[in-house]
Write a protein that binds this DNA or RNA. Structure first.
Lengths: 170, 170
DNA sequence: AGTATTTAATGACTTATGTCAAGATACAGC
DNA sequence: GCTGTATCTTGACATAAGTCATTAAATACT
């Protein structure tokens, strides 16, 4: 069932999975590689909403569910292999299979939990504390992503993160 | 079916629906009233993660799904009427009913979308811009909740929000 | 290996936001 | 209506974070 409906796709580093203004027709399961979901504000600054790696689902779910134009860009940070599928296909072929439906619920729950945690972090903690939490929760991110992207993910300028790291060495 | 499994409950203003450290056994559909979900940090400052009103579901979903002790408090801000149900009851009685299951999916999707939007706001915007967005998206919150709670929800001190409002009058 | 490009670090300075304290309103309970 | 409590505003000051400019270091591309 899996292979019958999921379309394999390769993305090269820097290639876009989704561009702002387009509808996010597909969600992609990441077999290999990593990507970032980001916006560009009026001043031209990028803000990374999400960093995604293997075994995660890639999509702007707002656009994917509602078929509205997306406010986000999704770009491959490494060469990627994904398995993609449309929302219509999910509804038609995947949802009816109890095992997949259950899996979807688990994914959705985990998403909700992660989002909740990140939001709490954002409103309660300083930059330094948010960085500490990231180091603790996703240590492999530090190896995998350049520091300026980590900074953007944390809602900090690259300079500020550089200084936080310098000070926390002592 | 609805009334067979949902237990009506009343909460008085300031009464707790959930206390930090307890497991969130129930989720409650809000028939009437409003509540806040918040944490208390080491310095004793409160941070409001969520403000909930009629027709929303009340719960710390991390604790509710995983049956782990919650990091949050949920407190009634007004006298409330809710309909509550356990996760086990949802799985046993609600999920099997297609109409309710579909409704759950919609709720979950909306949650995901709202969380995504709020997160983007948190990492991309200044306090002033976050306040503008709130005024735009949830204008009724301003009538309903005291300003210091709005400030906490936005991740700002009450003084800062007061000054933002003063300046944005001009 | 060698050049171009990207990423990271640092200093000087500006701006946003937090903190503390005081006073002013508004509101609730009796 | 009065009193006590909660909320909001304001000022003075402290701290956190952003901005801009420059240099250093790392990485990518032939």
């Amino acid at each position: 069932v899996f292979m019958a409906h999921f379309k394999p796709k390769k993305l090269r580093k820097r290639q876009y999975f989704l561009q702002e203004g387009d509808v996010c027709k597909y969600t992609g399961f990441i077999v290999k590689g990593a990507a970032r979901t980001f916006t560009v504000d009026e001043k031209g600054h990028e803000h990374i909403l999400k960093l995604s790696v293997e075994n995660w689902w890639l999509a702007d779910f707002e656009s994917f569910y509602q078929l509205t134009p997306s406010r986000f860009n999704i770009e491959a940070l490494e060469d990627m292999e994904i398995l993609q599928i449309t929302n219509a296909q999910v509804e038609e072929f995947i949802k009816p299979i109890p095992a997949f439906s259950a899996m979807q619920n688990v994914i959705s729950q985990n998403n909700t939990i992660a989002a909740q945690k990140r939001m709490q972090s954002a409103i309660s903690y300083s930059g330094k504390e948010r960085y500490r939490e990231l180091v603790n929760d996703y240590p492999h991110f530090l190896q995998r992503f350049p520091q300026n992207m980590i900074a953007s993910y944390l809602g900090l300028s690259p300079e500020t993160l550089s200084r936080i790291r310098k000070n926390s060495l002592k």
